[in-house]
Design a protein around this nucleic acid. Structure first.
Lengths: 239, 239
DNA sequence: TTAAACATATGTTATGCAGCACAAAATTAC
DNA sequence: GTAATTTTGTGCTGCATAACATATGTTTAA
């Protein structure tokens, strides 16, 4: 029977993928787990590949299994604003569906990524029959909203140095550092760094150079080592 | 029996209040409604009264039954940033609790307001046993998050005129207009208007005067009539 | 291998807006 | 009813940062 074959083909990948999604899957009963594993699909994305676009109709929830992605908004004059970044295993692309609208953001990979997709209609049905799953999304959304509130003030009220310092600390907290304990585990282009910090690319480059000259960071291409976290924190605080 | 008396005393107000909260209450069964009506308390706030403060531990969900409130964040150098505003019947003050943290914002009334309080422990319990209630919060949070994303770009990328235009349209959409069809149904101080639009009070005053000179709005103290909505929309779009 | 496209770097200019200072008007307090 | 305080209004100055120009290094493509 076709379904059996399809399942068999999927099985190894799907099982692995469901294991990674444990935080969500653990709220489900066996029947619900089955439904998800029937509906879930896996996708490979290259670096800088667009996942969804502004204006699209949301149909799937995306689960980032490996890699890194950005959610961004096209601003005035082609200037993009990075709204949030995700790491494994986090979910994205579902907000607009739950709010009953189209996408007001776009999403793209920052590095090669593996992403699982589940139809949102299915997720909605599951939420309505499983309060614990709903609770998972409520907690997640509340954390997102807190971060968003925080970012609004940071981006609007701090000066350039403060905004960049804030972004570097944000990236460290979000993605961590490599084995040496200093190098940020994410290699952003200066443009993405600028879009994250609400400034022009020129100013991101300039200010990062100044930080390097002040021995706050050590820059080697896209590798950034955070040397003096304490002073970066000061700069971020004082605006 | 004491509980009975307590109930009896509360009954009229509570019933009225529960009726207003229909969007939430309608998701509950009788037993759950009883729990809420036992725990709910009503409070009157004067104009410009603080409801909760930065750093406080969230204990109650607040339901605005009448009046208007702002949720704001203290920024650099005493400059406040209004994060969102609520109208009847909307809920606030629960985000931090669900995200397991303290308040990172403060809230205050913009006019005399009547506010119901329900312990968040109770709400959490109800969400965990009532998926439909959870769904209500998910929808609400997703709308909030969308507004927040939108605001981030507006506040960071638009010029002063664009930001003020945006704020005026935002207020119209959020609070509506009076019987004449033009006068905004909210009387904000210039300072609050500035804090909503990410600018200094001086610039809010100045720019509003310019709008008045350009016949886009008609200003009489804190009363603002929106005359030329189309052009305001243009100004807002173009930054 | 060369060219083309892109990313990074840095200096210069232009300007939008914050930060004053001060005055007038309106509200509140006594 | 007068003083005190807050809110509103306007002009001026300086600075932060966007915008532009240009150069160099680096990856991609033909």
């Amino acid at each position: 029977m076709f379904k059996g074959i399809k399942m068999a083909k999927k099985d190894k990948c799907t099982t692995e993928c469901m294991a990674k999604m444990n935080e969500l899957v653990s709220t489900l009963n066996e029947k619900q787990k089955d439904i998800i594993s029937q509906e879930i699909t896996l996708h490979q994305y290259k670096k800088n590949e667009v996942i969804y676009r502004y204006g699209d109709t949301p149909k799937y929830i995306y689960c980032l299994l490996s890699g890194k992605i950005k959610v961004y908004k096209e601003g005035v004059g082609g200037r993009n604003q990075i709204i949030r970044v995700a790491k494994p295993v986090e979910y994205f692309g579902y907000r607009a569906y739950f709010a009953n609208g189209k996408f007001i953001t776009a999403a793209a990979t920052l590095e090669p990524s593996c992403i699982a997709k589940i139809p949102l209609d299915t997720i909605k049905d599951l939420i309505l029959e499983n309060a614990e799953l709903g609770w998972f999304f409520i907690r997640t959304l509340c954390q997102e909203l807190g971060r968003s509130d925080q970012r609004t003030v940071n981006l609007t009220q701090k000066h350039i140095r403060g905004r960049l310092a804030e972004s570097l600390l944000f990236l460290k907290e979000r993605y961590g550092v490599e084995a040496d304990g200093y190098t940020l585990s994410i290699y952003l282009s200066r443009e993405d760094l600028a879009n994250l910090s609400n400034m022009t690319t020129s100013n991101a480059i300039r200010t990062l150079s100044l930080f390097a000259a002040d021995k706050l960071v050590l820059v080697d291409g896209r590798k950034i080592k955070i040397i003096d976290e304490e002073r970066l924190r000061q700069i971020s605080r004082l605006g």
